[in-house]
């Protein structure tokens, strides 16, 4: 646990009965950080959130929050807020009472309560919906009520399980900005789950990529985006041409291929985005199997001795017809070296 860690998970192991969902998870988060938890369905994001909130007791490992070991602290004593993937609003209470629920339990009454709830509702743009029941709201509105309900509690850590997944594109951008603003204003430490890498890149101070119950990579958005350290992360952030490296050569199913430059010694693999593949010259040859126009660019799928290669080229360049043979290069100098493969 580093000194600056506000929330830290140490060697956390989480299971449902005999099914281990998360294993050997280490994570240290600074106060006020906005963390995105990214990963495919079933990788253990919700499970991890539930453990931090205290709804799931770890099999082993520790959780520290604000210099306190909270591993065994009850969920209602942790000051951790959680916005559920399913909202979990109280169906029998109006929006106002949903948001007031936790404040009332704290003993808040009268004008103070009224003001806090109203300002919470205002933040999520639902002031005029205070008297509605959750059943009379759209999915996105329910999600915002859930957000307000947690935020008014001013928790030490606010966990959000796919908080923007049910909003339409426009509202999503608005709420994204809103989340960021609230986070900067209140300085609350926030972890949010998302499937959407663009959202993670845009919002987070740091991104945690999870796979199969462990952390695959932690880093700032630019780091994750430009220097993925494993084949999985590379593919996840858009490096669609990923190759294993053995003895200084690309190791593919169809054979070994030398490249035009020296491959970094520690690299287990190399990855290129479609836009990083140079078309029109180079040591390799492929035939065009597919082509699609995407506005400013054209995307090609090439059949090559290395396997299928995806290429993105400027739409200003001459088109390569289906079936045509083209030369291309995979420049080592700009490839992302992967420390882990598979």
């Amino acid at each position: 646990m580093s000194d600056s860690a506000y929330l830290s998970l140490e060697q956390l192991k989480l299971a449902y009965g005999k099914t281990v969902a998360v294993d050997r998870l280490d994570l240290a988060i600074k106060q006020g950080e906005l963390i995105a938890l990214l990963g495919p369905s079933g990788c253990g994001k919700t499970t991890t959130m539930r453990a931090i909130a205290g709804l799931l007791a770890p099999v082993s490992g520790h959780i520290h929050l604000d210099s306190r070991d909270i591993t065994r602290v009850a969920a209602n004593k942790r000051s951790v807020g959680l916005v559920f993937q399913s909202y979990a609003l109280f169906p029998h209470l109006a929006v106002f009472e949903n948001v007031a629920f936790g404040l009332r339990l704290k003993g808040m009454r009268g004008k103070e309560l009224e003001d806090r709830v109203q300002s919470g509702l205002k933040t999520v743009g639902l002031s005029s919906f205070a008297s509605r029941k959750p059943g009379e709201l759209s999915g996105g509105q329910q999600q915002r009520v859930a957000l307000a309900r947690s935020m008014v509690m001013e928790p030490k850590v606010l966990l959000l399980d796919e908080p923007l997944s049910n909003l339409d594109a426009r509202l999503r951008l608005e709420m994204r900005a809103e989340l960021q603003r609230v986070q900067k204003e209140t300085g609350v430490t926030m972890i949010f789950v998302t499937h959407d890498q663009a959202e993670a890149l845009a919002l987070a101070d740091r991104i945690v990529v999870m796979l199969n119950g462990t952390i695959e990579q932690i880093g700032a958005p630019e780091e994750i985006y430009n220097r993925p350290n494993s084949a999985f992360v590379a593919d996840f952030v858009g490096f669609e041409n990923v190759f294993r490296v053995r003895a200084g050569e690309l190791d593919t199913e169809t054979g070994r291929f030398a490249l035009g430059g020296a491959i970094p010694r520690e690299a287990q693999g190399l990855a290129w985005r479609p836009s990083m593949v140079e078309l029109g010259g180079g040591p390799f040859e492929g035939s065009v199997r597919g082509m699609s126009f995407a506005g400013g660019t054209r995307q090609y799928l090439l059949d090559t001795p290395l396997g299928p290669i995806k290429v993105e080229a400027s739409a200003h360049l001459p088109t390569h017809a289906l079936g045509a043979t083209v030369r291309f290069d995979l420049p080592v100098s700009i490839a992302a070296p992967l420390q882990r493969f598979g």
Partner: peptide, 13 residues
Amino acid sequence: RSDVEEAAILLGS
């Protein structure tokens, strides 16, 4: 849904 109760607990109940 049981997460409704969990939400209440996380709010201090």
